Computed example of a mutant assay.
Amino acid sequence: MQEEKDFIEQLLNTETQNKAFRELVRIYQKPLYNHIRNIVLNHDDTDDVLQNTFVKVFQYLKDFKGESKLFSWIYRIATNEAISFINQKAKKHQTTSEAIQSKIVENLKADVYFDGDEIQIKLQKAILLLPEKQQLVFRMKYFEELKYEEISEILGTTVGGLKASYHHAVKKIEDFMNNN
């Protein structure tokens, strides 16, 4: 895609870099915020991870080889940053990432940026019971409405594997929602 290639050249050119990066932030800030928020669940943590994501994008843009879409590459960085953030937080508190996320879900009612109801909180609890990959696939497909092909590029897995993960995730969530 020539348009994307031109945009990447602008990002790499020291004369056009600042303007192009502001444009990149304008384009990706809201969807990346939503993506990261779906993983870390907390607004303040999301802002921190989002900032780290843009720093990494800027830092490693020179290494982007164009083997995937810029969108996929940036989302992969955001996903990795979000997962790393949760794992670091767990390590700092000498607990598991699952325990950290469970505590965040319990605190969602008090989060002024969370506009969900009891069912949304129950859904978040159900999602936390899934293995990490199923959580990611479910959140990206259900909340962000990404196509399997996009998720495949972001997570580096096959479309068939993603469809199976999503199917299993939906079944487990349905069971949880019906039985709890």
Results as ranks from 00 to 15, higher is better:
M1S: 12
E4M: 11
I8D: 05
E9M: 03
N13D: 11
N13E: 00
E15G: 05
E15I: 02
N18C: 02
R22Q: 06
E23N: 11
Y28M: 08
H35D: 04
I36P: 07
L41R: 03
N42W: 02
V49G: 03
N52V: 01
F54L: 03
F54V: 04
F54Y: 04
V57W: 00
F58Y: 08
F58V: 00
Y60G: 01
F64G: 07
G66N: 09
S68I: 11
L70I: 13
F71I: 08
F71C: 04
W73L: 04
Y75K: 02
A78W: 01
E81I: 00
E81S: 05
E81N: 13
Q88H: 15
K92N: 12
T95S: 14
E98W: 03
L108K: 07
L108I: 09
D111E: 14
D111R: 02
V112I: 15
E118G: 11
K122C: 07
K125D: 10
L130E: 09
E132M: 14
K133L: 15
Q134W: 08
Q134M: 11
Q134R: 15
Q134C: 11
Q134V: 06
R139D: 08
R139W: 04
Y142W: 07
Y148M: 09
E149H: 09
E153M: 07
L155A: 05
L155G: 05
T157R: 05
T157G: 06
G160I: 05
G161D: 05
L162Y: 06
A164D: 04
S165T: 05
H168Q: 13
V170Q: 13
N179Y: 08
